[in-house]
Simulated scan of single mutants.
Amino acid sequence: MRKNLFDLGPVFGYFFRKNDPSRPSNFNLRTMHFINKLSMSMFLVGLLVLLYRWFIR
Score class of each variant (00 low, 15 high):
Met1Leu: 12
Met1His: 13
Met1Lys: 14
Met1Gln: 11
Arg2Cys: 11
Lys3Tyr: 10
Lys3Asp: 11
Lys3Phe: 14
Lys3Ala: 12
Lys3Arg: 11
Asn4Cys: 09
Leu5Lys: 10
Phe6Trp: 02
Phe6Ser: 07
Asp7Arg: 03
Asp7Ile: 03
Asp7Gly: 02
Asp7Asn: 06
Leu8Lys: 03
Leu8Gln: 00
Leu8His: 02
Leu8Ala: 05
Leu8Pro: 04
Gly9Asp: 14
Gly9Thr: 15
Gly9Leu: 13
Gly9Met: 13
Gly9Asn: 13
Gly9Tyr: 11
Gly9Cys: 08
Pro10Lys: 03
Pro10Val: 02
Pro10Cys: 00
Pro10Thr: 01
Val11Tyr: 01
Val11Lys: 00
Val11Arg: 02
Val11Phe: 00
Phe12Pro: 12
Phe12Thr: 12
Phe12Cys: 09
Phe12Met: 15
Gly13Gln: 07
Gly13Glu: 05
Gly13Phe: 04
Gly13Thr: 07
Gly13Ser: 05
Tyr14Thr: 02
Tyr14Leu: 03
Tyr14Val: 01
Phe15Arg: 02
Phe15Met: 00
Phe15Pro: 00
Phe15Ile: 02
Phe15Lys: 00
Phe15Ser: 01
Phe16Ile: 00
Phe16Arg: 02
Phe16Met: 01
Phe16Pro: 03
Phe16Gln: 02
Arg17Ala: 11
Arg17Cys: 08
Arg17Leu: 08
Lys18Ala: 14
Lys18Cys: 13
Lys18Trp: 08
Lys18Pro: 08
Lys18Ser: 10
Asn19Pro: 11
Asn19His: 14
Asn19Leu: 14
Asn19Glu: 15
Asn19Ala: 15
Asn19Arg: 15
Asp20Trp: 11
Asp20Met: 05
Asp20Leu: 06
Pro21Lys: 02
Pro21Cys: 04
Pro21Ser: 03
Pro21Ala: 03
Ser22Ala: 07
Ser22Met: 04
Ser22Thr: 02
Ser22Tyr: 04
Arg23Glu: 10
Arg23Cys: 14
Pro24Met: 05
Pro24Trp: 06
Ser25Pro: 08
Ser25Gln: 10
Ser25Glu: 03
Ser25Leu: 12
Asn26Ala: 06
Asn26Tyr: 01
Phe27Lys: 11
Phe27Gly: 08
Phe27Ile: 15
Asn28Arg: 13
Asn28Ser: 13
Leu29Pro: 08
Leu29Ala: 15
Leu29Cys: 09
Leu29Ile: 14
Leu29Thr: 13
Leu29Asp: 12
Arg30Asn: 04
Arg30Leu: 03
Arg30Trp: 01
Thr31Ile: 10
Thr31Arg: 14
Met32Arg: 14
Met32Asp: 10
Met32Ile: 05
His33Asp: 12
His33Ser: 11
Phe34Ala: 04
Phe34Asp: 04
Phe34His: 09
Phe34Cys: 05
Phe34Tyr: 13
Asn36Phe: 09
Asn36Met: 12
Asn36Leu: 10
Asn36Thr: 10
Lys37Ile: 00
Lys37Trp: 03
Lys37Gln: 05
Lys37Glu: 04
Leu38Asp: 13
Leu38Ala: 14
Leu38Lys: 07
Leu38Arg: 05
Leu38Gln: 11
Leu38Pro: 09
Ser39Ala: 15
Ser39Asn: 15
Met40His: 07
Met40Arg: 04
Ser41Thr: 04
Ser41Gln: 01
Ser41Met: 02
Ser41Asp: 01
Phe43Asp: 02
Phe43Met: 00
Leu44Glu: 13
Leu44Arg: 14
Leu44Ile: 14
Leu44Phe: 15
Leu44Trp: 13
Val45Pro: 06
Val45Thr: 12
Val45Glu: 06
Val45Met: 06
Val45Tyr: 07
Gly46Val: 07
Leu47Phe: 06
Leu47Tyr: 08
Leu47Arg: 10
